[in-house]
Amino acid sequence: MSNAELAGVDEFSKEEWALVDEAIEKYKGKPGSLIPVLEEIQAVTGYLPESLQRHVARGLDVPLSQVYGVVTFYSFFTMKPRGKHRIRICLGTACHVRGAGRNVDQLKKSLGIDVGECTEDRKFGLEVVRCLGACGLAPVMVVDADTHKQVKEAKLDKILDGYRDEPDAS
């Protein structure tokens, strides 16, 4: 398929598809190029849905199973769209004993998504991490680059509101 035909597939623009093809072209025929290609493409598109994986497999002339195997193996790659704001809840030991699990449940409920998913408006994505090394601040929640300390369930909505209200740059 040409870029024009692909435009609109999985919401990627013609320009984004052009960048996708550029990444494939750059690495084509070089051994071990699958991971860097996927990395560059995900930087453009935010995630790697089936259509993109098929496109990469064809472009690099590697089996689709290999692309799929790599995408599912590395947690860095995702097949689901990521939210504009990335919420990471620490579930390390210290955070866990101080109620981080309840925070996760509360966020799942209020955002209406599971861990690893993003909200329908693509505003927020929810992830859990094992330890952020900030145990003294437990329970810790990181939104984008901001660390929030001693987060209680009741404070969650207010914290998120600060990101919700932010004018959409795009």
Binding site: L64, G69, F73
Partner: peptide, 20 residues
């Protein structure tokens, strides 16, 4: 044919056809 691949990693890893 290269249809089959391990999917995911660790305990949940399993062998599936491409795209499961």
């Amino acid at each position: 044919v290269s249809l089959l691949t391990p999917e995911g990693r660790g305990f949940d890893s399993k062998v599936v056809p491409a795209m499961a």
